[in-house]
């Protein structure tokens, strides 16, 4: 059994509701429902055979066609030298997910970033503020249907009289 098959088998034992995809365009990943997200993260961290002690990355993807936002965690185990990709998703309108910053403290700023740029609320997060954009910013810029305002606090967002590259229209 290859390394990833071992991980798959063990993950299915621990989290039966996970569904595997071989990830035709990238790494294989396990999709999880939102309500099992926190428990699954805790399980893969604490299980001695998996031992995912390192959160490499936590990112978000807007999928307007499916009317949802995916959150992707890239995990790594220093002990076993293996990696795993976990995904979950939530709705685009007022979507929320349980925060995993108590599982991997590194998730705290990643979750703030996802909240800032995609508008996912992370329940249980201790300091959910915008990370990159100013605190009074309107909207979530990484959403596919985001339209930039003409002004921010009266500062024009296009350079007057300057042929700027066309903005993507949704």
């Amino acid at each position: 059994m290859s390394q990833i098959e071992t991980i798959q088998a063990r993950l299915l034992e621990l989290v039966p509701e996970s569904s595997w995809s071989d990830g035709a365009a990238g790494d294989p990943f396990a999709a999880l429902p939102a309500d099992g997200w926190h428990a699954a993260c805790l399980a893969v961290r604490d299980d001695p055979a998996l031992g995912f002690d390192f959160l490499r990355s936590l990112s978000g993807v807007d999928r307007p066609a499916d009317d949802r936002i995916e959150v992707v965690a890239h995990l790594f185990s220093y002990k076993h030298r293996h990696a795993l990709v976990l995904k979950t998703h939530t709705g685009r309108d007022g979507g929320a997910l349980p925060s995993i910053h108590d599982v991997w403290p590194a998730a705290e700023w990643y979750e703030r970033e996802i909240f800032d740029l995609l508008g996912v609320r992370f329940e249980g997060h201790r300091d959910l503020r915008r990370l990159l954009m100013p605190e009074d910013w309107q909207g979530h810029p990484l959403r596919k249907d985001y339209r930039e305002a003409e002004h921010y606090r009266g500062i024009p967002t296009r350079r007057p009289g300057y042929a700027a590259p066309d903005r993507d229209e949704p």
Partner: peptide, 17 residues
Amino acid sequence: TGGLFQGSYAVVKGGDL
């Protein structure tokens, strides 16, 4: 002018603004 980041949502398009 905002330079390389003219198309960015996060960048001021010139210090003279």
